[in-house]
């Protein structure tokens, strides 16, 4: 690992703060919904520990309660997370040559949408890649996701009903995080990529589904990147 292991792990923890703050309330909502769908608090938490993918966990609840066949449910949920295949290679491309990946089997598990975005933003601002830093970035996010799920499952239905303003603020954390990340990596050559990705996402979401919109936006934006010169 890196010589500055402690420092880079700590830097990862700091960079993970907005992710953890964003994850906790969403995971809390998932815990509430899971208990409402008939799972025990332990079962709800187990889903977050084992799957660790927000949107597909909510969809899993819908599939479970609708009585979908196991193979159908599994394939649907797997397809939903297919986009994650691109994150590791894109991150390693940004990290440069010769970086460590010995422990990628562990820190790679934490490579969610938000952790990937935060890692890329930090690298774009000149931070050197280190596996310890990736552990620091991923662990609080995972802990917040699992902890939030357990808290929500234990709190049960209507836990935030009396706090609508707090609930509203929580609901905006993820869009705010993504916008901040977008600003952090924004450069003039990437504007066409961003515009194409955004338009494709809107089109795919309105025409088919949010999953199609997300996957279509990423692929269309990345293909637009092929047209750039000197990228």
């Amino acid at each position: 690992m890196d010589d500055r292991q402690g420092e880079t792990f700590g830097a990862g923890l700091v960079a993970a703060v907005p992710i953890a703050l964003g994850y906790f309330p969403i995971a809390f909502a998932f815990g509430v919904a899971a208990v409402g769908a008939g799972l025990s608090p332990l079962g709800a938490t187990a889903l977050s520990v084992i799957i660790y993918a927000g949107a597909s966990q909510f969809l899993a609840l819908a599939l479970i309660t609708s009585g979908a066949a196991l193979p159908v449910a599994a394939l649907t949920l797997i397809a939903m997370n297919l986009r994650h295949v691109l994150y590791g290679p894109a991150l390693m491309k940004a990290a440069g040559e010769g970086v460590g990946k010995r422990h990628a089997w562990a820190w790679g598990w934490g490579l969610t949408d938000e952790v990937f975005g935060a890692a890329l933003g930090e690298l774009a601002r000149g931070r050197r890649f280190a596996e310890a830093w990736m552990f620091g970035l991923g662990l609080p996010a995972y802990a917040a996701w699992v902890g939030g799920t357990l808290a929500g499952a234990l709190a049960g239905d209507g836990a935030l009903a009396g706090w609508p303003v707090v609930e509203a603020g929580f609901s905006f954390l993820l869009p705010a995080l993504f916008l901040a990340l977008l600003l952090s990596i924004l450069t003039r050559p990437q504007v066409p990529v961003i515009v194409v990705a955004g338009l494709a996402c809107v089109g795919g979401t309105l025409a088919v589904s949010s999953t199609t919109g997300i996957l279509g936006g990423m692929v269309a934006g990345a293909l637009a990147g092929l047209l750039r010169r000197g990228a």
Partner: peptide
């Protein structure tokens, strides 16, 4: 791959 990151973040912000 260099374009995947900005595309992904833009997409997730929009979504």
């Amino acid at each position: 791959l260099a374009a995947v990151g900005p595309a992904a973040i833009a997409t997730l912000f929009v979504a």
